[in-house]
Simulated scan of single mutants.
Amino acid sequence: MPEGSSIVSTLRSAGCVFAEDEARLLLDAAHTPDELDRMVEQRVNGLPLEHILGWVDFCGSRMVIRRGVFVPRRRTEFLVRQAAMIAKPGAVVVDLCCGSGVIGAALSDFLASCELYATDIDPAAVDCARRNVEPRGGRVFAGDLYHALPRQLQGRVDIVLANAPYVPTRAIGMMPPEARLHEPLVALDGGTDGLDVQRRVAEHAADWLAPGGSLVVETSAAQASETSLLLQHFGLATRIVRDEDLDATVVLGQLRR
């Protein structure tokens, strides 16, 4: 197989910031020199590393990732940890816009047990999410937000997780090529102000949450105040939490008892 140092140089020349780490992962994953060559070429051409490997390290667990599915960001681990601080073992958890399903899966791991449901409108995401959620005893549904959920969940959900798309449409073109070219637009585009999907999530949250239940939403630092206001508009008491190291912002909304 090609030497690691030459792969590092190739990746670094292509703009990979963590070239050494990526080279090691590709070397470990490849079974033959030809396979390694293909993987390196794919990475040089901009395919996300996680799509090449078929997995992502998220909250300390190796989760399945498939091509054409949104790659979870490290900052989203902050959302999971915030949810874990307020959820109890056995909680009823819903992961909306679940993508690969890693958010709900990771929270399930933190809680040791929960009643987990996830939904996404993208068939590729649903297929990928099932690989992460179902081994943990959860269920994944194809459909638009709450409409995909079993009706018997209304009024008994303890935690709704929502890493809904929040990039304003006009900003999509400024995103890195890895995202623009290899991740589905439906997982990125949050509409004119970036809050279109969050608004729909918040609008119906009170119908699904149990008394005292919480909606946990990832957003940006610039949008946090607006996200908080729209959750308040639909009857939730809110607070904004942030992790500067991860550049992560979460709005917690609680249904008043």
Rank of each mutant, 00 (worst) to 15 (best):
I7Q: 03
S9K: 13
S9V: 05
S9T: 10
T10C: 07
C16F: 13
V17K: 13
F18G: 00
E20P: 06
E20C: 06
L27H: 07
T32A: 04
P33F: 02
R38F: 04
M39F: 10
V44Q: 07
N45E: 14
N45A: 12
G46Q: 11
E50W: 11
W55Y: 15
F58H: 02
C59M: 13
M63V: 09
I65H: 10
R66L: 14
R67A: 14
F70L: 15
V71G: 08
P72Q: 10
Q82K: 14
A83K: 04
A84W: 06
A84V: 08
A87F: 09
A91N: 04
A91S: 15
V94H: 06
L96Q: 11
C97I: 06
C97F: 00
S100N: 07
V102P: 00
V102H: 01
V102C: 12
V102G: 03
I103M: 12
G104A: 13
A106Q: 07
D109S: 12
F110S: 12
L111F: 12
A112F: 11
S113R: 15
S113Q: 14
Y117W: 13
Y117A: 03
A124H: 12
A125K: 02
R130E: 13
E134Y: 02
P135R: 10
G137K: 10
V140L: 03
F141L: 02
A142I: 07
G143V: 05
G143H: 05
L145T: 03
Y146E: 02
H147D: 15
H147S: 15
A148H: 06
L149V: 08
R151Q: 13
Q152P: 00
Q152Y: 13
G155Y: 07
G155S: 09
D158Y: 08
I159R: 00
V160C: 08
A162L: 03
N163H: 10
N163A: 09
A164Y: 01
T169S: 15
A171H: 12
I172C: 06
G173P: 02
M175S: 01
R180I: 09
L181V: 10
E183N: 04
P184Q: 05
A187H: 02
D189R: 01
L195R: 08
D196S: 14
R199P: 01
H204F: 10
W208P: 03
W208M: 03
L209A: 06
P211A: 09
G212T: 10
G212R: 10
G213H: 03
V217L: 06
A221K: 14
A221Y: 11
Q223V: 00
S225W: 05
S228E: 12
S228C: 10
Q232S: 15
H233S: 08
F234S: 03
A237T: 14
T238K: 01
R242Q: 13
D243F: 01
L246R: 09
D247P: 00
A248G: 01
T249K: 01
L252H: 00
G253S: 07
Q254Y: 05
R256V: 14
R257P: 13
R257M: 09
